[in-house]
Design a protein around this nucleic acid. Structure first.
Lengths: 328, 328
DNA sequence: ACGATTTGCGGGAACGTTCCCGCAAATAAA
DNA sequence: TTTATTTGCGGGAACGTTCCCGCAAATCGT
């Protein structure tokens, strides 16, 4: 990097002012006359000035970066991707960079971030445990359980149970009595996966219905999914398919329509984690829109608050941006 | 961030040495006796020392961060995700952070990175154009065309044409004569999408076969995909389905098997961009494994080389890690 | 009109690192 | 031994910011 960029001193020299004045004008602090402030801002733009983050970080003793941990799964990638972009967006607003955490944590990395967002952490996830042990401010999206769980300063959750119950009640209102849940069979299941299953079964029991859960492995092949659907419909005689993982509802649509069944008439399909265009907005599928982008942004804002008040007690916050879309 | 970590000076004080000695011992430079070097390293570990990147960046005038640009598409996410983790891995080895670039580039961000990797950039992609205009060292994975293309210092490509031809020849060897390509119909197609289509049609012509291309929109719903497959098989009478986008082959498998067709017997399916577990390793689908993780790592290494030799002429490099898996 | 307060700005230090140089002691060359 | 050369280490400056303080001028209160 031979290229050298304009510094605060260049601006100061250009205007015959001191670096202090320029710094506080740009930073919004200090007591500067409005005319000078404008002038400084203007020449800063003209010179293409952009503040040197390294210098600032060094001085104010903050890294300016937050880490993002995404669980090592094959499913729901679109959700995580959008979530990541939401984090990026929120981070930019609060002047953070976002760095992606690889599966393995090299111990140094932990101390190169001001805080971490872990989305859908598996119970006892070693990377999260290590971060917590290191005292890194951590926001868990979905609950984290495992070593150091008492040190999670922030937890963000959507109203999964309420939304899911709404969607399920809608099935009932449409006269469906034989529902089947396609659940993710992950040996280390996230709180979402666990809650989802419980919400479903308890809802069934409350309503006098028989819960039918069909496991689909996390790394399930298309055939496995087809097998599960077939089983649910043929053996289980299901008149409504409730899909846990993102994309499963769309897959089900293919399979079912391929068999000549009409969605909305012969049976209903609902997605508990609607994929952007495929499921959300699909007129034949009821779906919960987790609004991943806004979700990620909210997580970042929570983390930022925690970083700025490190000694505040742990906080649990609800994300209000998720919504449910019901067919006709 | 109230937490304050051990500095190089703490180590120096502890051992009665100077910061210079400690720094060069840790950095591997300078002339230090082996005994002292060991001693320093040891106490550094003991004190949990980790070098302050801000201070180093400030001093050596490098940011220590590379940006990653992922195209705003819904498909092939698993590929991009794995690619991203490959980048992260390679970056860690060369002591970089990786920051995700959101869709929109705030102009400041461009100068907070030492370089950028753009994977499958669309022609004229504004973000890439802006980066190139700003003189940021840029590696394009797949060719970039558009404003500033002459300033792309590094291009990395896999042997798509060769691998695809191998897979196609294999179809021929199995007696398939009526192949159909499921192509991505993107208004702003990446070089990969364009090349793939050309490779296919030229191969057909060379072998006296009639090329059949079925467009599938980038944001295609499952129904659209089913429609394309149905069209190819029923109307086109295809005995082999060549799938461009990741995941399409697996989807096709569902549809075809749902219709009672046997893969490998009634017809063949090949994937030009095999998804990790679903297609790669699927005994019934021939697929090209783009080895996204290694691909990302290679891209990072190329970028690092370019950052260190900014004045070197533009370089085009082949990625040798991709491979093709043929059914029986 | 005189002291008290506010306003506008600048000087200097500090953050933690690396790198250039200098200098003594040890070793090699003569 | 005397003169070069190498080895091992330390002093000090610099990177670009921010922040604490200080100080003159302007404004205020009475």
């Amino acid at each position: 990097m031979a290229r050298t960029r304009a510094t605060i001193m260049d601006i100061a020299r250009e205007l015959g002012l001191s670096k202090t004045t320029v710094s506080s004008a740009l930073g919004g602090s200090g007591r500067i006359s409005d005319e000078k402030r404008e002038l400084i801002q203007e020449t800063a733009d003209r010179l293409g000035y952009v503040t040197n983050r390294a210098a600032r970080s060094l001085r104010v003793n903050r890294i300016g970066t937050i880490g993002l941990h995404i669980p090592p799964v094959a499913r729901s990638l679109a959700f995580y991707m959008d979530f990541a972009f939401g984090v990026t967006e929120g981070a930019a607003a609060a002047d953070y960079d976002v760095t992606l955490f690889a599966r393995e944590l090299t111990p140094r990395m932990a101390f190169q971030v001001d805080g971490v967002i872990a989305i859908d952490p598996a119970p006892g996830e070693p990377l999260v445990a290590a971060l917590l042990a290191g005292g890194i401010p951590t926001v868990s999206v979905g609950r984290y359980s495992g070593p150091g769980e008492e040190r999670v300063q922030g937890t963000l959750e959507a109203h999964h149970a309420e939304l899911q119950t709404q969607a399920l009640n809608h099935l009932l209102a449409r006269g469906r009595r034989r529902t089947a849940l396609l659940a993710i069979d992950d040996e280390i299941a996230s709180s979402w996966a666990v809650d989802t299953r419980r919400t479903y079964t308890e809802w069934c029991i409350r309503n006098g219905l028989e819960p039918q859960v069909f496991e689909v492995g996390a790394g399930a092949s298309p055939r496995d999914l087809v097998a599960a659907i077939t089983q649910a419909v043929d053996l289980g005689g299901a008149d409504a398919l409730v899909c846990g993982a993102q994309g499963q509802a769309a897959q089900s649509q293919i399979v079912l329509e391929g068999r000549g069944l009409a969605l909305g008439a012969d049976l209903d399909v609902v997605s508990f984690a609607g994929a952007a265009a495929l499921e959300t907005g699909n007129p034949l599928i009821s779906s919960i829109d987790l609004a991943p982008r806004a979700y990620g942004k909210a997580a970042t804002e929570l983390l930022d608050a925690i970083i700025q008040h490190p000694d505040a007690p742990p906080v649990h916050r609800w994300f209000e941006g998720a919504s449910v879309h019901l067919v006709r």
